[in-house]
Simulated assay, not measured.
Amino acid sequence: MDLRHLRYFLAVAEEKHFGRAAERLNIVQPALSMQIKALEAELGGALFIRTSRHVELTEAGLLLQAEAQRTLDQVEHTRLAVERSLRGETGRVRVGFAGNAIFSGKMTGDLRRFHKAYPDAEIVIQEVAPQKQVEAILAGQLDIGYTPDNSTTSVAAIRVQKAGSWEIMVAMTDDHPLAGHACITVEMLAEQPLILYDAHDTHEQVYLMFAQRLGDSFRVAHRSASTLSVLAIAAAGLGLALIPAPVQQVNIPGLLYRRLDAPEMMANLVIISRVAEPSNAVTAYLEMAVPTVL
């Protein structure tokens, strides 16, 4: 007994006529009659009471009708569930982010579009330091990361896709000697205690450019993986923070932002993920997010 037998049986049970059932199934009547007889032989008894005008279900036939319908409904449910999974409409997407991803609006925009298109997919969002996102993805704890590009992303198993770039701003207290300048040059930052993100390690482009321009007068006083921590340290007067332009949306009493006159130094944001991605939901998310990359 297979699914075809059940569909044939239900067609006859519903039409109460072999000819109409055969027409509905788009097969010839003798072939349908043969299939029903084979089903009855396999089950060991009659399923229909046949007359010259129509057929009626036996007691066993009534039982099979209910079970066959339930079976075919479950098969259809399974088919649709698998198809939705293959299209990425269900499943789970775990997204890690560094603070810049929030302030730029890139990640939140991607999440809104994905949730609208795939409302049944589960989305898990958590803040993860840039230096730890690659490790989390490779360990299967995270699927997608929004992070400034850094030395940890240069891994063969990790796909890196550009998500945007912005000019660098300098955050400082409103009573700092440089606060009167509308624009800060790199040379003005010589000997100044600077506050950097952890992502700006000694191999990262921004760090290397500052080291080259300032030489021995390049001073890194503090580092942090958290945007709010970077701003808090700057607001406390412990140094000047180098931040991506979107972060200036954060209003902290006593803290102001000035543009850095260094167009060659840009803060960037990338989307990282596995090169070999087994999840259809994650793949669907990436396909939606990547075409909008700046």
Rank of each mutant, 00 (worst) to 15 (best):
272 I>D: 12
255 L>Q: 09
256 L>K: 11
185 T>N: 15
188 M>C: 10
199 A>C: 11
200 H>L: 14
216 D>Y: 02
189 L>I: 02
218 F>E: 09
249 Q>H: 06
281 A>V: 04
267 A>M: 01
267 A>K: 01
232 A>Q: 09
238 L>A: 11
195 I>G: 07
229 S>N: 13
215 G>E: 11
220 V>D: 00
252 I>S: 08
279 S>D: 10
186 V>W: 01
280 N>C: 14
187 E>P: 04
245 A>F: 00
241 A>T: 07
223 R>V: 05
212 Q>R: 13
191 E>P: 02
264 E>T: 10
273 S>Q: 06
233 I>R: 11
213 R>C: 09
278 P>V: 02
275 V>Q: 14
269 L>R: 10
249 Q>V: 09
218 F>L: 12
239 G>M: 04
276 A>C: 02
221 A>H: 00
231 L>S: 09
269 L>G: 10
272 I>P: 13
188 M>W: 05
224 S>A: 13
206 V>R: 15
244 P>G: 06
196 L>D: 01
218 F>A: 12
241 A>N: 06
256 L>N: 07
215 G>F: 04
196 L>I: 06
212 Q>V: 09
243 I>W: 00
251 N>T: 13
246 P>T: 05
200 H>C: 14
230 V>R: 10
184 I>Q: 13
211 A>T: 03
242 L>R: 01
189 L>A: 08
233 I>Q: 12
195 I>P: 04
189 L>D: 01
228 L>M: 14
188 M>D: 14
204 E>Q: 15
185 T>L: 14
254 G>P: 08
275 V>N: 07
200 H>T: 08
282 V>I: 04
251 N>H: 09
262 A>G: 03
269 L>D: 05
211 A>P: 02
223 R>K: 15
284 A>T: 03
232 A>W: 01
230 V>I: 15
236 A>E: 10
248 Q>T: 15
254 G>V: 11
248 Q>K: 15
220 V>N: 02
277 E>R: 09
210 F>T: 02
227 T>N: 12
191 E>D: 15
233 I>N: 07
191 E>C: 08
265 M>D: 00
203 H>K: 14
222 H>V: 00
275 V>G: 06
236 A>Y: 02
221 A>L: 00
190 A>Q: 09
277 E>H: 04
206 V>H: 06
255 L>H: 05
264 E>C: 07
185 T>W: 08
276 A>L: 07
190 A>P: 04
237 G>A: 13
277 E>D: 09
191 E>T: 07
189 L>C: 05
280 N>D: 11
231 L>P: 05
276 A>H: 06
229 S>A: 13
246 P>A: 12
257 Y>V: 08
206 V>N: 11
222 H>S: 03
239 G>W: 01
188 M>S: 12
195 I>T: 09
210 F>R: 10
190 A>H: 03
230 V>M: 15
236 A>M: 12
252 I>C: 06
238 L>R: 12
265 M>G: 01
270 V>G: 05
282 V>E: 05
248 Q>H: 06
249 Q>Y: 02
227 T>Y: 07
232 A>V: 01
197 Y>T: 06
184 I>G: 05
241 A>G: 15
197 Y>D: 04
199 A>V: 11
225 A>E: 10
